[in-house]
């Protein structure tokens, strides 16, 4: 603060410091009110007296400053304030150039002003370049001449509408892309004040994780499950337009043909027999499991003997 005060004007006569831009006087030579025992009324009186003296010095300066005439009297021209005060918000940041602006600069394309009105040859009058009742408005075209390249069955009017819509969507996409770039490069403060970027899916309150987006395969699987979750396993359900058959139709077991050659059946039996009769056949047996089973059978046998014995006894 002391360093900042040096910039303020110093009145040589009264020894007062002034910041005329803020209409501020500071009397550092005055010790303030020293007597602690003075009554409150005395305080008030002293305050006013000291204040009036300081303001008188300020008025002395102000009334002798250059001024200019105005409708309501003379206006004194004030110098800029010298006391530095903190800002309430950070300085606005310039927006980084958009992709188009970068491209235009590299190619040396200059922005040029175009008039708001343009001459419409068909209507024979001046019309707006954009907006309602504009030049060559697509909506006002009554007839489109057929071309040799036209495909039969396609409506050129709806095509035109579709193209227009696609152009708008593309521009919107570009805009979002530029905003994202701005956010990445220059931070939040460089975005326009009226625009905020927010995430599409907000996390559920209390959990930090954003819900995972399902992949195409996962979605297909879920759709398949849902379509077969009926009494007829989806057999008699009406299919939607463009619906593809479920990926897993539900057939998992394979049965060998009942008639025909028994070659396959023989192969299967041989495979099992080979496993059982091979030299390392103990490897295919879980010894623990088998021993458990044996003990279980023995216990069962003992239990049944006991029961029988009891029966005999009575």
């Amino acid at each position: 603060m002391a360093a900042e005060e040096e910039g303020a004007g110093m009145d040589s006569l009264s020894g007062l410091r002034m910041d005329i831009g803020n209409l501020l006087v500071f009397d550092a030579t005055d010790p303030g009110i020293e007597e602690a025992s003075t009554s409150s009324d005395d305080y008030d009186e002293q305050c006013l007296r000291k204040g009036a003296r300081a303001i008188q010095a300020l008025a002395e300066k102000l009334f002798n400053m250059p001024s200019e005439a105005d409708k309501y009297g003379r206006l004194v021209i004030l110098p800029p304030p010298t006391t530095k005060l903190p800002r309430e918000k950070p300085l606005p940041k310039p927006r980084p150039p958009t992709k188009w602006e970068q491209f235009a600069q590299s190619k040396g394309i200059k922005k040029r002003k175009r008039s708001k009105l343009d001459f419409d040859e068909d209507a024979g009058e001046w019309r707006r370049r954009y907006g309602y009742k504009r030049v060559a408005d697509e909506r006002d075209i009554p007839v489109i001449e057929a071309k040799s390249t036209d495909e039969p069955g396609e409506d050129p009017f709806s095509n035109m509408k579709k193209e227009k819509k696609a152009r708008i969507e593309k521009q919107e996409k570009n805009r979002l892309q530029n905003l994202k770039h701005t956010l990445k490069v220059a931070g939040k403060s460089a975005l326009p004040s009226t625009v905020q970027l927010s995430t599409m899916a907000l996390p559920i309150t209390g959990s930090a994780q954003v819900p995972k987006k399902l992949t195409k395969d996962e979605l297909g699987e879920i759709a398949g499950h849902a379509s077969t979750a009926t009494a007829s396993v989806g057999k008699f359900d009406r299919k939607l337009e463009g619906e593809k058959p479920a990926k897993h139709a539900g057939k998992h077991r394979k049965f060998l043909p009942v008639v025909g050659s028994s070659k396959e059946e023989k192969q299967q039996s041989d495979k099992i027999l080979d496993k059982v009769l091979s030299r390392h056949n103990q490897e295919i047996v879980d010894v623990n499991k088998v021993s458990d089973l044996i003990f279980a059978f023995r216990g069962l046998a003992n239990f049944s003997h006991g029961v029988l014995g009891f029966c005999v006894g009575c």
């Binding site: 009110i33 305050c47 003379r74 004030l78």
Partner: peptide, 20 residues
């Protein structure tokens, strides 16, 4: 913040006095 002021409208002051 102003750069011009009408002195006829100079009508209020905040006086702050420090005490011992």
């Amino acid at each position: 913040e102003v750069d011009r002021i009408n002195l006829a409208g100079l009508d209020r002051v905040f006086v702050c006095v420090a005490t011992a």
